[in-house]
């Protein structure tokens, strides 16, 4: 089975987020870059599928030179080869352009059975790229899959479970198909030391704007990069919510104990009624 995974590198949103002085983008100075956490689930699912059905896992990532770290991590986890679409003209492209370029490279690969990708990227949180790729390739997609129930490579079918409000659905789709991954569908493995060593020797192809032939995709140089985006960010604000931080603690130790419990409970209910006016 030929399994593709579309991965990207993202800003680590556990960090403090600040806006640059022009006010329209996030300050990435000193930012830690990590594999998009949802893509870790995608890579893990791909490797597990390969372990079950045989075949190979191919990583596809678009991004600047630093994205190589993320590609190496995926290879070290157990993927077999990678395509890195790297060119400054792609920087800050919107989800459409990104989807089109990634799809065009996928079309140049040999046949494939299934594509996994993350449900969204945690910095921009656009949640569209994977679905655009599927549309561009004219294959079905199943989003937010909580569990891949079964893959039948010879019968060319996949069955997935997807959570909906108040329950779940089981969806059957023909292959090839693109699946977007939320968290918790599996336990992403860590890259082992031998894995990291091996990753260095795995095939890695680098693709640039010249290889992509943007014009043939209906993408003029102007439609790539920030200028070509269909939607522009004009301003970014950091939400500031002042919290009251009125915490009731115990007297002898931090936890309320014994008699303190009842009075703490009473006090909290009182402030929620009198001060916060929410009950």
């Amino acid at each position: 089975m030929r399994i593709l995974v579309i991965v990207s590198q993202t800003q680590d949103t556990e960090a403090k987020i600040e806006v640059v002085s022009s006010g329209d983008s996030i300050d990435v100075e000193g930012m830690k870059w990590v594999m998009n956490p949802y893509d870790e689930f995608a890579v893990e699912e791909a490797i597990q599928s390969k372990e079950k059905h045989g075949g190979e896992v191919v990583i596809i990532a678009m991004g600047p030179a630093r994205a190589l770290e993320t590609i190496r991590q995926a290879l070290a986890m157990g993927a077999d080869s990678a395509v890195h679409i790297s060119d400054d003209s792609f920087a800050d492209s919107d989800s459409f352009a990104t989807g089109k370029v990634i799809a065009s490279e996928i079309k140049k690969l040999d046949e494939f059975d299934i594509i996994f990708t993350g449900m969204k990227i945690i910095d921009e949180e656009s949640g569209q790229v994977g679905i655009h790729v599927a549309e561009e390739l004219d294959i079905p997609h199943v989003s937010l899959v909580s569990k891949v129930v079964s893959i039948d490579p010879s019968g060319k079918r996949v069955v997935c479970q997807k959570e909906i409000d108040g329950g779940h659905v089981i969806v059957e789709s023909p292959l090839p198909c693109l699946i977007t991954c939320p968290d918790a569908m599996n336990e992403p493995r860590y890259a082992s030391l031998p894995g990291i060593m091996k990753a260095k020797r795995k095939p890695l192809k680098t693709v640039t704007i010249a290889d992509v032939k943007a014009e043939e995709l209906g993408l003029t140089p102007q439609s790539l990069g920030k200028e070509g985006a269909r939607v522009n960010t004009i301003e970014i604000k950091i939400p500031q919510i002042e919290r009251k931080l009125r915490i009731i603690k115990g007297s002898a130790e931090p936890m309320v104990k014994g008699e303190e419990v009842a009075s703490a409970a009473r006090e909290l209910v009182e402030v929620l009624r009198e001060e916060a006016k929410v009950i």
Partner: peptide, 29 residues
Amino acid sequence: DPEAPIFQKCDYGIVGDLFDVLPPFTQNV
């Protein structure tokens, strides 16, 4: 846990065991 990050970003709170605190709290509500 008094060190739980949530105590840095909430309005009201009790540091206590939920199994102790919740029954009287719920009763009062």
